[in-house]
Design a binder for these strands. Sequence first.
DNA 1: CTGTATCCACAACGATACTG
DNA 2: CAGTATCGTTGTGGATACAG
Lengths: 124, 124
Amino acid sequence: MSDQDACSAGWCAGEEWCPVTCTADLLGRKWHPVVVHRLLVHDSLRFSELREEIGGVTGKVISDTLDDMEEKDLVERSVVDEKPVQVEYALSERGESLAPIIEAMDEWGRDHLVSVDAVETPSA
Amino acid sequence: MSDQDACSAGWCAGEEWCPVTCTADLLGRKWHPVVVHRLLVHDSLRFSELREEIGGVTGKVISDTLDDMEEKDLVERSVVDEKPVQVEYALSERGESLAPIIEAMDEWGRDHLVSVDAVETPSA
DNA sequence: CTGTATCCACAACGATACTG
DNA sequence: CAGTATCGTTGTGGATACAG
């Protein structure tokens, strides 16, 4: 962990801090969950692979995301080759422990979000 | 649902859309998860109760949040009394179906986020 | 290949004041 | 009580160009 207390994102129900808010604060950005998901599936990916895997996002944003996640100890960065530079990203233990959340999100998405062609396909 | 396709938040792994990204897009804002959580615990709450339950947030933000969630069919608003106005918010079915995600977040938070005094208390 | 530096746009958040 | 209007600040994301 970096330098601050557990979380300053908010509190609730009279408690000093709120686990839900704090967790949301941790991976509440647009691309964090997908990164975790891709890394859950592939174990480890290089920067460019990650960028390819995830559509509609520029390198800068991936970089930002990865940066933030590394700082929060969710992913680990390792330089595989120096020439040319090759880097691999993998989930840390902490990052892997997010699996239940991400999987729940994945499942919910498949279950409750229409995929543009799944909603109107009743065989009846 | 309102007017658009399922989700335009992003895609991944060659798929047309990404369940994880889309779900994140749905409740990826700062206060959405907590609202769901509080409503999961209390079944239904009035506006002011919700504001009291959740700390560090102004009415405007709660209102915005609730507004967005209602539009996404995650919560249901019902006027209980007209004079003075009293309103109750409860989760819709869709909203309740988010329970696994929120609970996973709650659990993860309690498990992996220090509560300023819990980190150094190993009984062993 | 793996990033960083800029710059811009927009949405979310937050404070305050005001209304039905 | 339950909001909305307004305004300002900040953060996040996105495009492009450049660098080690």
